[in-house]
């Protein structure tokens, strides 16, 4: 007999909502979480609603005109400068998530399947750099990629180049390298978790049925780890689209992204409604892109049979 079957009837009976005991269980649980829930409502949901509201208003010097307008969205979507920034941000975040996931997968696979006794040590090694300040890591990449930087001096020291290259820093490639590094941990962990859930006997069964290592990987392990790949892709894609520090520090003029424009509207340019519209547009477009990514990965997963 299992403990769950008899020891904890409330869990088993989760379907029956009319029960008074269950109701009190629900009430207790809800009461316990409500402070945190209310906090998130006030500091996350409410602010996002306020931003959406602002995006339909107009800035009149120091005051805000509360008449409904779609003008901000017209500017956000048609002004070449914002359109370019949006495209570039989407391109960068898509590239970064593809790169990060592709680079992270073998690591996650290695730790999960060949990590042995040292699994937790490997995981710890991978998380540590992530716990150090993001700002400092970006700054360090600036040191590495700069004109007088480590990479240039190193390459010159090896005689590969004769004078420092300025192609390393202040462009979107620099942004992509930095972001790929910054989000590595976030991509490895979900893939690792989903690989851990893959029943090892399934792989053995595939081998037993005649698949070689590569085929059993492609037909069993990879499709079964798709949920991890999806969450890794999303967890990297959505935040990177709105990254501010990296483009500002290593992006230069060619690496500016939409977050820098949004910040400008709330700072120097002082056009809150336009900044709000840019934020909302970014969120919607990145959500669409995320949705498309999920569909593509699912389709690929189905192909792998």
């Amino acid at each position: 007999m299992t403990v769950a079957a008899e020891g904890s009837p409330p869990l088993r009976m989760a379907g029956a909502r009319r029960n008074p005991l269950l109701q009190s269980e629900a009430v207790q649980g809800f009461a316990l979480i409500s402070p945190t829930f209310v906090y998130a409502l006030i500091l996350l949901v409410l602010p996002i609603l306020v931003v959406i509201a602002h995006s339909f208003w107009t800035q009149n010097y120091l005051t805000i005109d509360h008449t409904f307008t779609l003008e901000n969205y017209r500017i956000a979507l048609t002004e070449p400068i914002y359109r370019d920034l949006l495209w570039r941000s989407l391109y960068i975040s898509l590239t970064v998530s593809l790169l990060t996931v592709a680079l992270a997968y073998p690591i996650a696979y290695f730790i999960s399947f060949h990590g042995g006794r040292h699994k937790s040590l490997w995981l710890f090694l991978i998380t540590i750099p992530f716990w150090t300040s993001y700002l400092l890591r970006v700054m360090s990449w600036k040191v590495i990629l700069g004109y007088n930087g480590v990479l240039n001096s190193g390459l010159m020291g090896l005689g590969i180049i004769s004078e420092p290259s300025d192609a390393l820093l202040y462009n979107s490639t620099a942004v992509i390298i930095t972001l790929t590094h910054a989000w590595a941990t976030f991509a490895i962990l979900p893939i690792f978790v989903s690989l851990e859930k893959v029943d090892r006997t399934l792989v053995e069964a595939a081998t037993d049925l005649g698949d070689g290592p590569l085929r059993s990987f492609l037909r069993v392990t990879l499709p079964l780890s798709a949920p991890g790949v999806i969450s890794a892709a999303l967890i990297v894609m959505i935040p990177t689209v709105g990254d501010y520090v990296t483009p500002k520090l290593v992006g230069g003029k060619d690496g500016v992204m939409i977050a820098n424009a949004i910040q400008a509207q709330f700072g120097k340019a002082s056009n809150w409604p336009l900044g709000a519209a840019l934020s909302v547009t970014t969120m919607i477009i990145v959500s669409l892109m995320a949705g498309a990514t999920v569909l593509v990965i699912r389709a690929l997963q189905r192909l792998a049979r």
């Binding site: 829930f37 996350l44 306020v50 959505i238 935040p239 977050a259 934020s279």
Partner: peptide, 19 residues
């Protein structure tokens, strides 16, 4: 909802709260 700040762009979370 409580976990959402983990995956939202920080700039957008920040400016929303600022507003």
């Amino acid at each position: 909802l409580i976990m959402a700040p983990l995956v939202l762009p920080e700039v957008i979370v920040a400016i929303s709260m600022l507003l």
